[in-house]
């Protein structure tokens, strides 16, 4: 029996090509998954940092503790996400590297969560507008085909439902409170409304992960979000803003001026003392 060298070479080439194709597909899938995880985690990281800023600065001891507890919950969730992202990246980047050593343009949180703690009404309005979305998002993420993401979601959902109760309660209390508290809460809702639509925008990674049955189709959450938020605002004797002009950009890494200052504080330790651990 003679061996046709050419034939062997062709079949080897074809195999190499097939392997290369598969590995590109795996890399693409991993890259999308990596970016998808970051998209979820960055929201919680940045909001967690904002709430953490209130440590020692809350209006009363009880609310101070509540805000920092919410921050702690969010950071805990972030750790689970970044530990997973680090595994997916598989290039030695640790959870700390991912959390602390990216540049501003590489953070893909929504603009809403980076808005400053202007006053307590503003802080609670921001929390409420995010919590309602966050809770609905996690309910869907529990059904993800990715078992790690679904486990993190079922863990987080219990914590986030307490956040949502807390922030909803404050929106109602301040909205349906004194003339001054009502004015402040209304101003906060009006100012932050412009950042709500972005919650329902899809990135490329989002679309790819939805197609895989891993990601949540956020466009489907939009109607019930606005319905729920509007009902609560009415209950709080607040006006539902009518503005149709919405800001976006956070999910593409284009941020408001506030994020840079936050990152300076967030990253200070890690950049000054490299390789510190959480």
């Amino acid at each position: 029996m003679s061996i046709d060298r050419d034939e062997i070479e062709i079949s080897l080439k074809a195999r190499c090509e097939a392997i290369r194709k598969v590995s590109i597909e795996v890399n693409m899938k991993n890259e999308n998954l990596y970016n998808y995880i970051l998209g979820i985690a960055d929201n919680s990281l940045i909001l967690g940092q904002r709430m953490g800023e209130l440590c020692g600065h809350g209006p009363t001891l009880e609310t101070d503790i509540a805000c920092t507890n919410i921050s702690l919950d969010l950071f805990g969730q972030v750790r689970s996400y970044f530990q997973y992202a680090s595994k997916i990246a598989g290039d030695g980047r640790t959870e700390d590297d991912i959390a602390m050593l990216r540049k501003e343009r590489e953070y893909i949180n929504v603009l809403l969560v980076e808005q400053p703690n202007t006053d307590f009404a503003y802080t609670m309005a921001r929390q409420f507008l995010f919590d309602v979305y966050h809770l609905a998002f996690l309910v869907e993420l529990q059904k993800s085909a990715d078992l790690t993401l679904s486990a993190i979601a079922s863990k987080s959902i219990k914590e986030v439902s307490y956040h949502e109760r807390f922030s909803s309660d404050w929106v109602k209390r301040l909205g349906d409170g004194t003339e001054e508290s009502n004015t402040k809460m209304q101003e906060a809702i009006d100012a932050l409304w412009t950042y709500t639509d972005e919650l329902f925008h899809q990135t490329e990674a989002d679309k790819a992960m939805v197609a895989e049955g891993i990601g949540v189709d956020v466009t489907k959450l939009k109607d019930s979000y606005y319905r729920h938020v509007s009902e609560l605002l009415e209950e709080a004797t607040l006006q539902v803003p009518e503005s149709k002009y919405f800001q976006k950009g956070g999910k593409e890494g284009i941020h408001t001026e506030h994020l840079g200052y936050m990152l300076a504080e967030l990253q200070y330790m890690q950049r000054t003392y490299p390789n510190m651990e959480w």
């Binding site: 009880e62 503790i65 509540a66 507890n69 919950d73 307490y162 807390f166 309660d169």
Partner: peptide
């Protein structure tokens, strides 16, 4: 008193009879 207590798993309560402040495990 507050939905969040000394740790993330607890809420703060106060007794209106004996005035004792205490934690409730959520």
């Amino acid at each position: 008193v507050s939905q969040f207590g000394s740790t993330a798993c607890k809420a703060q309560f106060q007794c209106e009879d004996c005035q004792e402040p205490f934690d409730y495990f959520k």
